[in-house]
Amino acid sequence: MKTSRYAHIFFLAPALITLLVFFFLPVLAALLMSATDFDVYALGNFGRARFLFLENYRRALEDPLFWKALFNTFYFVMVGGPLTILVSLAAAVALNAKILRFRKFFRLAFFLPVVTTLVAVAVVWRYLYHPRYGMINYLLSGFGIEPIDWLGDPTWAMPALILLAVWKNFGYNMLIFLAGLQAIPETLYESARIDGANWWQQQFYITIPQLAPTSIFVTIITIIGYFQLFAEPFVMTQGGPLNATLSIVLYLYQQGFRWWQMGYASSIAFILFFILIVLGLVQELVRRRINRGGAV
C-alpha cells in the first residue's frame, strides 16, 4: 500500500489527544488525588493538603454512610438489574411471537421511555408517587391497597426508584434481545417441534441457550449502568429518607462538589471503578466458559 506513513497520526490525533487530556490523564490525576486530603482548604494553597497514601480508602471502609451508599447501590443493581432483564426478555419474546399484530406500534410504545430525558421523567414520577394525590396510589386503591408513602418511607423509597428504572430502561435491552431472537435459525424450532417439544420446552432448550451471549452482554451493560445511579435520587429524594436512596455516585457528588472533599471523593470513585473491573472479569470468565461449552 503506497500511502503517507504518518497519515494515520493526523486522523487519530484529535480523538486521542482529547481522550488523553480529558480522560486518561485525569484518571491518573484522580488516582493521585485519592491519596491526598485535597479539599477546600487546599484549593488555593497546596501546602494545606497532606499526602495520605491509602488513608482515604481506610476512611471509606470506616464510614457508615459509604457502606450505606454501597449497600443501596447493590440493592438497586441486584434487584433492579435482574428485574429489568427479565421484563425485557419477556417483552422481546412477546414482540417476536408470530401471532402478534401491530408489532411496530408495540415496539415503539415499549421503547419510548428509553429515549426520554431521565430528569424529566423523574420529575413526572415524583408526582405520580405522591402518597395523597398521586396516580399510582389511586390506582392501587382500586385493588384495596392502602396508600403507600413511596418516596417518604425508607422501606419503599428504593423499590420506587427501581420501579421507575425498570420502566425507563427495559425497552433498550428488549431490542437487543429481539435482535438475538431473530438471529436464531427457524430450523432449530422446526426440528424440535417434529421431536414433539411443546412451547415451554422450545424456549428452555433452544431460545435460552441460543440467547446466552446476548444475555451476558445485556447483563453487563445493565449492571454497569445501574451502578452509576445518580439522577433519580438526586431529583426525587436527594438521597433520603434516612439515606435510604443515597447511591455511591450521589455520595461522591456530595463529597466532591458540595463539600469539596476532592481527595476523599476520588477514592470513592476508584472503589466504584474497582467494583466494575471485578464485574467485568466475572463476565469475561462466564463468557469463556460458555464459549468453551460450545453450542449445546
Binding site: 480522560f23 484522580a30 466532591g256 470513585a269 466504584l272
Partner: peptide, 20 residues
C-alpha cells in the same frame, strides 16, 4: 486498550477534569 478503557466510569475523571 481503548475498548477495555470503556469500563472506567466517567465519575472517576469528574473531579480532575473539573479542576482542569
Amino acid at each position: 486498550g481503548l475498548i477495555s478503557a470503556m469500563i472506567i466510569p466517567g465519575q472517576v475523571t469528574m473531579l480532575p477534569v473539573f479542576l482542569l
